[in-house]
Design a protein around this nucleic acid. Structure first.
Lengths: 205, 205
DNA sequence: GGCAAACCTATCCTTAAGTATAGGGGACTA
DNA sequence: TAGTCCCCTATACTTAAGGATAGGTTTGCC
């Protein structure tokens, strides 16, 4: 019976997926609410066969969380799961050594198949995923953002000033200005308010 | 055995929650991937006791979807579910007649309790999700705005600069600054981005 | 008439936002 | 090894945003 560790900060999503996997297919599922908790939980026992990480989750910091998890437990397979990430993120994740990428648009039955697939040693990436060019311009624009730029955009979406963002990210205000300038250019907008509104419109944060 | 219709565009989330509710508590759960599909599905049979709508889902258009659903099936209880919406959205939804608001940060066990609560005729809103709206950002804050301030706010919500707003309203830029300053104070926020986000959150424009 | 409120404008000021240029360091890659 | 990309920082600058004060107009109300 394979052991799975599922990390997602949405309790409802995490619990129900865990319960589904346990009852329907007899997997043994542990859960965690963020990356640190997941890594802690793996330290005691090395019996985890598959670690599933939510892409938007405290501690993940983009794909840095994937690297941390893989470095901490090289033997364990790591899959990413996301409801918002696009093809580019998925490809990057796979390139960085993820064993699978699970969009939340997947059906529950497919999830089980994907997990079995990954546990058997293969790597899973749904091929139709992200193929449809929905709102191509803006959607693709967000994928061009670097990790730091995404974090900066997230703070813009709460209406924070450069100074506050600098404090939160523990960098200098000038650096924040640089990130802001670059992300404005990449999104094709002319000020921070437009950037925040655009991101909100696309339900990124 | 109560009938529940669960509408969410994330197949994985929807299926697992549905499966959980069915297996763990014996609810009879139907599903839909968007609002139109949900409303269609309800037309044939009027046996649905509770409709659960994902706040971010095709066809919802903010809280308009809630109104549509309630108008189409006045007898049916309607609850909203969201992973991103905040206290303000929840309060507005309850004010507009929702029977419950389910943040996805809820535990699976609490979800079952919430559903039972709603089915019994009560209305469910988690405590920590703010029964108390924040003082300065109260609903009435917007009603304090003068006509010009409202027009100014509307332009802020497209991310325009003071200069552009001045041109659009055919007044001087200094005057726009005055309106902005006053409306920021009335809304209890500290800059134009926060004002725009707040207005958008309330679906004012 | 006096009064209040919303609206408009002006001048002055401080701080924030955004641009430009230049450079150092780390990580990955050909 | 060189090249590239991201990240960080620094200096310097221009423009925008926001605040403070002091007026001015109209409308309408008591």
């Amino acid at each position: 019976m394979p052991n799975i560790l599922l990390a997602d900060d949405h309790d409802l999503v995490r619990d129900t997926i865990a319960a589904y996997l346990e009852t329907v297919d007899g997997f043994n599922v542990l859960t965690a609410a963020n990356l640190d908790e997941a890594l802690e939980r793996m330290d005691g026992l090395d019996a985890i066969d598959l670690l599933i990480l939510d892409y938007n989750m405290p501690g993940m910091n983009g794909l840095e969380g994937l690297d941390r998890a893989r470095k901490a437990h090289p033997a364990c397979k790591v899959a990413l799961m996301s409801g918002v990430a696009n093809r580019d993120v998925a490809n990057t994740a796979m390139a960085r050594g993820a064993s699978g990428f699970i969009p939340k648009s997947l059906t529950a039955a497919s999830l089980v198949n994907a997990i079995k697939f990954v546990l058997s040693g293969e790597r899973f990436l749904p091929f139709d995923f992200g193929a449809a060019p929905q709102e191509a311009r803006a959607e693709g624009a967000f994928s061009k953002l670097s990790a730091r730029e995404l974090q900066t955009l997230e703070q813009l979406c709460i209406g924070l000033s450069n100074k506050e963002i600098a404090r939160n990210l523990d960098i200098q205000e000038v650096t924040v200005k640089l990130h802001v300038k670059n992300l404005l250019a990449k999104l094709g907008v002319s000020n921070r308010t437009q950037a925040a509104l655009l991101a909100k419109e696309r339900h990124l944060f």
